[in-house]
């Protein structure tokens, strides 16, 4: 489903952010991406839909390499939700924003309507259709940001800290939602409760490298390593 080989990336200012990432995720697998601030989680996720282009290495989604020519198809398969919802939302109303992806793909208006309603309901934002996204609270914006991608029904969800800024009930609902969604997922988070609830497999990044890739249960049971990785 997702294959990353020897992926390295440095930001234009020279900051090295990823140093040789190798990763294989099978279809339907739900994987948590852990690591301290600045470990490279967001940078890795931004590569999945080609927002950032690797300095070296390759990414293949569903047999399709992430390259300039394939971007449009890749973006139908990979639903990326940026860490900062203001990076995600760009329309005058919530409805327009959630409808953009499906409309762009050329779906019929009736189908678009239905998908928008479904997506907003999934994130608990029904009734906010006509509100301007930039006037919503942070948690509300996070939820709308997730809806914009759910409405596109991608096969891989790449979510960057989806539970950050959510209230406890919204977290619970998010956890429930992620558990029931059928998609393959790679989700960065600092929320160990969410990890334990949803993700059978965890990957830990440190300074742009994969330092652990194993069953969540064994990682969470290893207090010493959690401490060492800065996760508790």
């Amino acid at each position: 489903m997702l294959t990353i080989t020897n992926l390295s990336y440095a930001y234009p200012d020279g900051t090295p952010a990823l140093r040789g990432i190798d990763l294989v995720v099978a279809a339907g697998e739900k994987v948590a991406l852990l690591g301290v601030n600045g470990a490279g989680k967001s940078t890795l996720l931004l590569h999945l839909n080609g927002t950032l282009r690797p300095a070296s290495g390759a990414i293949v989604v569903d047999g399709l390499p992430v390259t300039a020519q394939n971007l449009r198809q890749i973006r139908a398969r990979v639903g990326l939700v940026f860490q900062d919802p203001d990076d995600q939302l760009f329309s005058p109303t919530v409805f327009d924003d959630v409808a953009f992806g499906p409309l762009y793909m050329g779906l019929a208006p009736a189908e678009v309507d239905q998908r928008v309603q479904q997506a907003l309901q999934a994130v608990g934002m029904t009734g906010y259709e006509q509100r301007p996204p930039h006037r919503l609270s942070l948690g509300q914006r996070k939820r709308v940001a997730l809806a914009t991608v759910l409405a596109m029904q991608p096969s891989l969800l790449a979510l960057d800290e989806p539970s950050a800024g959510l209230d406890p009930r919204a977290r619970r609902e998010l956890s429930e939602l992620l558990r029931t969604l059928p998609q393959t997922m790679l989700v960065s988070t600092h929320d160990l409760a969410l990890v334990a609830d949803v993700f059978p497999r965890s990957i830990v990044l440190a300074e742009g490298r994969v330092v652990a890739d194993e069953a969540t249960s064994s990682l969470l049971a290893d207090h010493d390593r959690l401490w060492q990785y800065g996760l508790i």
Binding site: A76, Q88, F90, M105, G106, M152
Partner: peptide
């Protein structure tokens, strides 16, 4: 943000 959701699916003009 817009580009990141400008997607095309097979059989549909994007």
């Amino acid at each position: 943000a817009r580009d990141s959701r400008s997607a095309s699916i097979p059989g549909q003009p994007a």
